[in-house]
Design a protein around this nucleic acid. Structure first.
Lengths: 254, 254
DNA sequence: GTAGCCTACTGGTCCGACCAGTGCACTAGC
DNA sequence: GCTAGTGCACTGGTCGGACCAGTAGGCTAC
């Protein structure tokens, strides 16, 4: 017969229990962004642990992006509003140690971006549409530096219009990773000027499709646009997988 | 005139420099998974910092999922193979403090899963197809517990067949978050038995479409399947956004 | 009234100590 | 000879105390 099923007792370190408590307070809303934690010396009394333990706990919370501490600040550590910084960090690490290829990253962007655009074509407000249009205008008049910024603004407006915060955050994170990866290369592109002009044309078409409410068309155009933009940086054998998202003629409609 | 543009010097803490060096060694491959770091006392000599500083650095590295340390282990901290644990953690935090709704999470899954299936229909090997088929068979013969496991196995096989590690990891992370969120609810579902039967039918259709190489059809079916499966848990006003992914009749073809 | 200093805190770092674990070499027993 | 058991030397986890540089806010002197 099997006796009572005992749970394995994982040795839980003191600093972990401190982390759990503070984390719980933040997630439950008992501690809001902008509020301050007690000082380390105060915390060591409240938790009855040493300052080393408190500090290790704070380091973990800081690594998770929940808290920030400044030396000399008489108010103690500050509870931060959530930022995708931690997500960004772990995804960047993933990209490096897990050897994500540029192709995979771009493919991921094609999927998420086109989904965002498909949704935006349906759900966007007039305001958001105006933002996208403004970004495209800025792309036209920009030098190669401002061009990137305007491009980001466009895609960010689209992502927000999709109404899905997770899509918005993930597109943002992956985009910045891709941009970092090919940083410098874009300047040395065989024909950066032509690339920019073509990209502007693509964006205008996408914008028109969003304005018309034709999500499938907008999504298809955006995938094609991203493929064209990055294809030169991606090894030929990897491009096949990316084209699998295009070949159907239309992942977004007939 | 503007003089030389000086960079703002952010005060870099000692433990951060330790983190950077170890992190760099791991990312560059100088330190491989399974290898051991020197002991804390050895590290404090090498970095010429105190043990507290070394420990805070190790806590950060541990929080990022790069190393693990066991008390008493004579070999020092172990370099871990990358696991999406850190990604999972930060995304879970995101879901909680950033108040991601179940609807947004499911919508995200619909996007990623259908993209994975679209790619899998194109790129899958016979082996991977067999895995998917085996998983569906297990779903048929399983009780409600094993059903979930088989379901996971199916989607995991699909994600692997997509050939995109990022898609694979993200679907996995988001799936587990969704499952946690509705844990317990599924048992109390109005008609769990019927839901399971319907789900099996859907999976068989998806599998058939993948086998036939009809990616767009498979993708459409999978979105519909996921929508049907989770719709009951999602408030009506949120369902509209999810249906935006279905209404086009076919985000994957005519 | 204001400019500047002073003080009482903060977090960052260091040191030294103790404890409970772990792995390994060594030894006692077969 | 080989195995089973025992120490030992080390590990990480925690503690306490100490010092430093930095900050904010009150206080003083102008």
């Amino acid at each position: 017969m099997s006796g009572p099923r005992f749970e394995p007792v994982r040795a839980v370190r003191a600093y972990e229990r401190v982390v759990e408590q503070v984390e719980g307070a933040i997630e439950s809303g008992a501690l809001s962004p902008g509020e301050r934690l007690p000082s380390e010396r105060e915390l060591m009394v409240q938790f009855s642990v040493s300052r080393s333990t408190v500090r290790e706990a704070l380091r973990v919370l800081q690594a998770r992006g929940l808290v920030r501490s400044r030396p000399g600040d008489p108010n103690g550590a500050e509870v931060l509003p959530f930022s995708p910084a931690a997500l960004h960090k772990s995804m960047t690490t993933l990209a490096r140690v897990s050897e994500l290829s540029l192709g995979e990253l771009v493919q991921f962007r094609m999927v998420l971006d086109s989904a965002a655009i498909l949704l935006a074509a349906r759900l966007r407000t007039e305001e958001q549409l105006a933002e996208m249009a403004a970004a495209v205008e800025r792309m036209k008049e920009a030098d190669s530096e401002a061009f990137g910024a305007a491009d980001v603004a466009f895609h960010d407006a689209v992502a927000r219009a999709s109404g899905n915060k997770l899509i918005q955050i993930c597109t943002d994170v992956v985009r910045s990773i891709v941009v970092d990866l090919i940083a410098g290369k874009i300047a040395s592109a065989p024909d950066g000027e032509a690339l920019m002009r073509r990209s502007i044309g693509h964006h205008e078409e996408v914008l028109a499709a969003v304005r018309a409410g034709d999500g499938p068309l907008a999504a298809r155009l955006s995938r094609q646009s991203m493929y064209d933009y990055y294809a030169d940086y991606i090894p030929a054998e990897e491009r096949v997988a990316l084209r699998a998202l295009l070949d159907y003629g239309d992942i977004g409609g007939p």
